[in-house]
């Protein structure tokens, strides 16, 4: 993994820490990650920041055995598409969950974890992961 710059990590903090996405005040659609333009309303759309719910269900998942660089020591781990309670889908790691409980439809809750380290002396990136509850 190429170590991202600290400014890139910093830019993602509202999304990674607080799951702050967007809502279109014209049509009411929610988006995560944040969008600059509502794809439905285009120029008529008016986007504002919106905090996403911290719970949802597993929509689909996979178990990663061949992890990308930087995540090798964590494998095998689960990666899932989570459908949040407002219908928005996010991709996230699943943590602290027994293998047999990780399945489509399982209820999950957000957890705050370390995502990666930019090398031994670099910055640490924190953010959301999910746990089956």
């Amino acid at each position: 993994m190429v170590s991202p710059s600290s400014s890139l990590i910093w830019r993602e903090i509202p999304e990674r820490y607080g799951m702050v996405g967007s809502v279109c005040q014209t049509c009411g659609a929610s988006y995560f990650p944040q969008r600059k333009v509502c794809p439905k309303c285009r120029r008529k759309g008016k986007l504002a920041l919106q905090k996403m719910p911290e719970n949802g269900r597993i929509y689909a998942f996979t178990e990663v055995h061949s992890a990308p660089r930087g995540f090798e020591n964590e494998s095998p781990y689960f990666l899932a598409i989570i459908e949040l309670s407002n219908g928005v889908r996010v991709l996230a790691q699943i943590v602290d969950s027994e293998k047999e409980k990780v399945k489509a439809g399982a209820t999950v809750e957000m957890r705050f974890r370390k995502i990666f380290e930019a090398g031994k002396e670099g910055i640490l990136a924190y953010g959301y992961k999910f746990k089956v509850v």
Partner: peptide, 12 residues
């Protein structure tokens, strides 16, 4: 865990 430290536990 591997991805936990005093900061993640503080936040939780």
């Amino acid at each position: 865990a591997f991805d936990e430290d005093s900061a993640t536990m503080a936040v939780e």
